[in-house]
């Protein structure tokens, strides 16, 4: 078995509750390597929670998540006991993953270059000059080399999100997770972020994208996963999703987008 055969992320019967609210119910889902997988679904269906479980920002209540075949966060012992991994092991598995948030989450006290180079210096221990050279290359990639010395407060939302993408990419993750990366942006700024993501997809990055941009999902995703009330109701190619929607909930969900200019896809 080559590494390509192993899914980048394998969720097996993942459940997540907050108190007595079950938010994720038995999610079994493979994220294939080198492809773009989108998570769509109505508000509150658990998309962010699932994505956050994949980054171990949330701990699944039960079930397992494998990153490139390695268990994330918990190790199953022979006795069946689920033991939390030591922090160093969690960090090592997590190093495969880059995360991009809806609210960008740039650090306001650092410039764009500082944000992108910080982890290279602090986590990888690279000397300042080398870290900044690598960070600069990432900023160039997202078209923001000329804004390197700007603080986040001096950048537009779209520019901030591109810096955040560059920051995640600088750690050379093998999988990128995006949680509604454009929904905090004015419509005219979403394009610049989606373009960076398209370029990343074209380079073969494994991506999981929670999005309400059905147009983006339809044109870039290899697989679309539809969540509703914490369950994975449908998983398939964009053609399958848009051409012949089968599940009534999916059909109903997509209907709400017909009015929003996504009708040409359906």
């Amino acid at each position: 078995m080559t590494t390509d055969d192993i899914p980048a992320i394998a969720c097996n019967k993942v459940c997540k509750s907050f108190g007595s609210t079950e938010v994720l119910k038995d999610i079994t889902l493979d994220i294939p390597a080198g492809q773009v997988s989108c998570l769509i679904g109505p508000s509150g269906s658990g998309k962010s929670t699932l994505l956050r479980c994949m980054a171990f920002l949330e701990e699944a209540t039960s079930g397992t998540i494998l990153i490139k075949g390695q268990p994330l966060g918990f190790s199953e012992q022979d006795s069946g006991f689920r033991a939390r991994q030591p922090a160093s092991q969690i960090r090592a598995v997590r190093a495969n993953i880059g995360m991009v948030f809806q609210q960008f989450n740039l650090w306001p006290h650092m410039t764009a270059l500082g944000n992108v180079s910080a982890a290279l210096r602090v986590v990888r221990g690279l000397p300042k000059r080398e870290a900044e050279a690598r960070a600069m290359a990432q900023l160039e990639k997202v078209g923001l080399a000329d804004r390197a010395d700007h603080y986040p407060s001096q950048l537009s939302g779209g520019q901030q999100q591109r810096v955040a993408i560059a920051r995640a990419l600088a750690q050379e993750p093998r999988i990128m997770l995006f949680d509604e990366p454009t929904s905090a942006l004015d419509p005219e700024l979403t394009g610049e972020v989606l373009n960076v993501m398209r370029q990343l997809a074209a380079e073969g990055m494994t991506m999981v994208v929670v999005t309400h941009e059905i147009g983006f999902a339809g044109s870039v995703a290899n697989r679309i996963n539809f969540l509703d009330h914490g369950r994975l109701l449908f998983s398939g190619s964009p053609e399958e999703v848009f051409r012949k929607p089968r599940h009534p909930r999916l059909e109903q969900f997509l209907d709400t987008y017909l009015d929003r200019g996504a009708s040409m896809l359906v």
Partner: peptide
């Protein structure tokens, strides 16, 4: 909390997050 989560995802340890993110912010 998101600023701390960003540091977590980039591999910062707890003390590194305090030193480089929380204290200056």
């Amino acid at each position: 909390e998101g600023h701390v989560e960003a540091a977590d995802c980039l591999g910062f340890g707890r003390i590194q997050t305090i030193r480089h993110v929380l204290l200056p912010e």
